[in-house]
Design a protein around this nucleic acid. Structure first.
Lengths: 222, 222, 222, 222
DNA sequence: GATGAATGAGAGTTCATTCAT
DNA sequence: TATGAATGAACTCTCATTCAT
């Protein structure tokens, strides 16, 4: 008994033309940047993988070589932003230490605000994504954003209490509420005058905000 | 021989039993309320027509008898919110008129803030939708939502200028920026202490915010 | 202050033309039949939802109105088959009861085989699916198929033991192995001469199989 | 402030380190073995090239140096199996030649079955692939796999006819059907008691099957 | 010869919208 | 007026295959 060979003609269905490979880190960064831009302009839900890969100039499948899912890129953007935030805080630009020795609370507020405005201007797109997408995307992200905001409140409240202890600010104010007010003011100015604006006058913004926070709106006592 | 069932058997298909016709306005209101609740809890994109009609207790098709599209309900909610906003403003609770004759700007701020907090607490769900979904959802909405915010800024800025003209507040402050700061502070407090909270202490909030805005954080001059 | 209405033009993206609705049970049956045919011809993995809905002559989305997923239709087919199997067994066509009173084991085997061949011929397509897709599809299905085979072995083994107790068959044979041999022979004949054949001679098959099982291949003792 | 990481960071991207070249035949064999194992455990469709190359310890591209496509490896496995099958047949372990001179058909059947059980146990994995994936996988394979089965039937039928001519078995039986019955019984026992079992008692199996085939189930004539 | 990043067609699934009843 | 089954474009994700290195 002789069995005929099975080997058969293969019917290649389509042709694929891989582009030039790139260093993995570079490609990942490229995709992260593209995703940040797309999320910033369209929001998480409205953004499509199609748009991200088109922006990055790669094929659909390439995306999934670097991120497990759409949610995962989003979280990667958040992680990136957190990292930069921690560096910014660690650099002391916003720490009360700066104020010690300086009796001028108003000047300190100005410097602090200015440096934060600069931070958000530098990281414009990622900031847009973070400020915009407060809505539910992924349980992990919800936790992350909540934590981010809470840590911001805690940070500002702690700083304010230090100031109160130093007698630099009025002791009757609730540090927690002040923290929220600061975050609210800051977020609003950032959204209105920093993120979508080409050449924002960050110094003016910091000046006005510091003046407002320091002196209030009450006319000077006569 | 008895074999266990492999499937869970839940068909999405329902039976057809027409509900009693309702007055068009009532049905529209019913759908609008349902949509507001669903958008508030899930966000615009995540909300489905299915969920809205299920909440309203009507059929899918009925929805399209009253609204041309999903986008249209969202805009209807915004329009509704506008209407109430205009009434609130017209009622003078927030108009500078109140302040005329009263030289006490701080008391005025307190009263104004309090009444606004009450407004947002009363219209909790719609407010959640407007504050949450203010960000880019759909290019088509941007115009509408942006206009809503702009009108709020304009209102507050105009009021502030009136105050400046009356000498009630410092003239060196930029009315535009103050308007944004107020909106930011207000929005933040509303989100943090009003919308998701059962029995918010609106008076305290108004008090703290008014104190902060009026006096700033600077310690009392000795 | 007057706010302009937001109501905007809706840009309908595409036109949809729903076909005439059908009674849910009819539609479900239509889809189940189509899926059975497609799975029978291409196997579970190779079969696409596209092919199923094309066969049923409905739109892609309609499928998901009746089945939660591709795996779910498959399991529904299996459930259907199990139901018919239980009926077939319950009808006693295969029960040893028939043999009682009749000393003719060979005739009983013939009748039993015949009725089973008829069953598989009647439910040709579903049977093809069940006999073909022994491979892993879904844990639930694996369990189901294993259970199905085990119950078949158990059934045949029990019947054989009854026969042994009645002295109708040789007591030295292992009922478990005989059960497997019967299932194997049956499956093979079904696959080769029943499923893909237009007018199978079921009686001949039953006759040959009964003769083989009853007498073996040994030449008649002289 | 320390924020917890949101992502799990596992990139699919690997580093590039060429392995030492290997003799083409050795590499091909390495890949064939890996593919056999993967197909046996996951089935043809569910098996991925990724898994095959990971098992073989080579890169994706290497696979396509030795096989034109996924389908081609499958056919190569089948070809391999054919080769071994022909050797097994040629070795006469299963040829009627053995029986010539020996009047004991039952002993012959036992020896033959035993040697076949051993063959399938030795080539466990390839056998699993061939027996499991015999069903419709891809229209292109049907021809090949069908031919494999047909050649098995032909072989057994021819042998049976020889036996009939020698007067060793009953002449009234249809050789074609007997061939199918033998294949079915054999396949079933192999699947149930050989392939997935650690130390199968091949001799017992052969004994039971030979006894059944030789004598049938009929009680000894009194 | 060996590599693995890149590719893109096509898979399963969702859901806003339509219209026969 | 009210219904809900039907629709199909668009979505996220997979994986066999290619080719620059």
């Amino acid at each position: 008994m002789t069995l005929t060979r099975l080997t058969c003609q293969s019917s290649k269905v389509q042709s694929r033309k891989p582009r030039a490979p790139l260093h993995p880190d570079a490609r990942r960064h490229q995709l992260l940047t593209a995703a940040t831009a797309v999320f910033a302009h369209r929001g998480y839900r409205a953004a499509g993988i199609s748009e991200i890969v088109a922006t990055a100039g790669v094929a659909r499948g390439t995306f999934y070589l670097y991120f497990a899912s759409k949610a995962e890129v989003f979280l990667a953007i958040a992680d990136d932003f957190y990292d930069r935030l921690e560096i910014q805080i660690a650099q002391g630009g916003a720490s009360p230490a700066l104020a010690v020795g300086s009796p001028d609370g108003r000047a300190f507020l100005h410097a602090s605000f200015r440096s934060w405005f600069e931070f958000f201007h530098t990281h414009r797109l990622a900031a847009t994504v973070m400020l915009t997408e407060a809505a539910a995307i992924d349980p992990r992200f919800d936790r992350g954003v909540a934590e981010l905001r809470r840590s911001a409140y805690t940070h500002f409240a702690a700083r304010f209490r230090t100031f109160q202890a130093l007698g630099m600010v009025r002791p009757s104010l609730s540090a927690d509420i002040i923290a929220h007010l600061q975050v609210g003011m800051f977020e609003e100015l950032v959204k209105a005058f920093v993120l979508g604006v080409d050449n924002p006058d960050l110094d003016s913004l910091a000046e006005q905000m510091a003046d407002f926070e320091w002196n209030g709106v009450r006319p000077a006592a006569r």
